[in-house]
């Protein structure tokens, strides 16, 4: 209770800085969270297609890729919802970041091996014409999202988060 009065008295600039960083945190949360929920939502109704998209990367054995394809959209939605609501932000961002790193590796190896696939990030996926691949854009987008995740792992505090409401962080 006394902390509040003190802050307004002599810690104005540092409080403003905190607020700015909190806003950055909120934007990072919403960006990564909304993209994950949308990506998961677009795939969750077509599990067979999601499985094919994962198989298209040709990293995992066929059957393993099938189960990963079934699970991935749900994982994305769960992690995305945690980020949007700001609950267990650091943990959710860590998982989201690891997903992005995995996606970047997957896309890069497909590019390097000369596969012609759509990343299948938002549904679709699988083989496309050589001219229809968009590897650089896909990697750039996932790198941007990985940066959002890294920010939140480093500094999970943000505005309007359940972490703050429930646990006072």
């Amino acid at each position: 209770m006394t902390a509040a009065t003190q802050t307004s008295a002599d810690a104005g600039p540092s409080r403003r800085k905190e607020l700015t960083l909190d806003v950055v945190g909120l934007l990072a949360r919403l960006t990564l969270g909304i993209v994950l929920v949308v990506a998961g939502w677009l795939k969750v109704g077509n599990p067979a297609g999601a499985a094919r998209a994962v198989q298209g990367y040709r990293i995992m054995p066929y059957d393993v890729a099938t189960y990963v394809g079934y699970a991935l959209p749900i994982v994305e939605i769960v992690v995305g919802l945690l980020l949007i609501t700001g609950l267990f932000t650091r943990f959710a961002a860590l998982i989201g970041g690891l997903l992005m790193v995995a996606f970047i590796i997957g896309i890069s190896q497909a590019w390097a091996r000369g596969l012609h696939i759509d990343c299948g990030c938002f549904g679709g996926g699988g083989e496309v014409a050589a001219s229809a691949t968009r590897y650089p854009q896909e990697i750039a987008r996932d790198t941007g999202l990985a940066v959002c995740a890294a920010w939140l792992v480093w500094r999970p505090q943000s505005l309007a988060s359940l972490d703050r409401v429930l646990f006072g962080r």
Partner: peptide, 14 residues
């Protein structure tokens, strides 16, 4: 529950 249930449901459903 959501993830494991979803995977099992999809496997059986397919």
């Amino acid at each position: 529950v959501a993830i494991v249930g979803g995977v099992i449901f999809n496997s059986i459903h397919q």
